[in-house]
Nucleic acid binder design. Sequence first.
DNA 1: TTTACGATCTAT
DNA 2: TAGATCGTAAAT
Length: 204
Amino acid sequence: MGESNIISSEFYDRQVIEVARDLLGKRLVRVLYGVRVSGIISETEAYDGMQDLACHARVGKTKRNAVMFGNAGRAYVYFTYGMHWCLNIVTGPKDYPAAVLIRAIQPQEGLEIIEMSRGMIARKNWTNGPAKLTQALQINQLQNGLDITRPDGNLWIESSLVINENDVKTGPRIGIANTPKPWRSMPWRFWFEATQQAGLEQKL
DNA sequence: TTTACGATCTAT
DNA sequence: TAGATCGTAAAT
């Protein structure tokens, strides 16, 4: 099922900032009902260790954030705002809590399943937010701690587009207004405009 | 046990 | 711009 180019743990076992940038253009793949459901990662954010006061790990290791303290290449899926699930990929060495939040994807495969998962919502709003894409790909607490460097969990990331440095935008992370400086303004959000990417716009 | 607050989304 | 909605971690 096209699993030959699954990204391996070496990719994730690096500085979280680098991984967050390099995940742009990669393909997030979910297998549901035996069908590939996928999208190109178009927006990410890096959360970097206990000193980063926007990171869940700032309070130390807890039951909730324990996965972040584990090996790179695992899914850290957390529940927030009483109703939403968000997907992160753990990076860096064991016992260093860092992860990349996947904030948006551009749908590519399994559009019927995405439409079914998202209900009667405008197509452009299917997966343009961290809790929207988990809804679209049916990701929840069952995927927390999952090894995404293997195909058997039905969730992984494949190499795909290469995004030019000129097309990468950066800025402060979203939704952390109460986080102290300098962490509130660190430019650790990465994204690219999908329509600028040749080959991708035709598929959108 | 109680409280305050979210790494958000949606309708208004 | 505000309401939904509840797990989590710290305070009581």
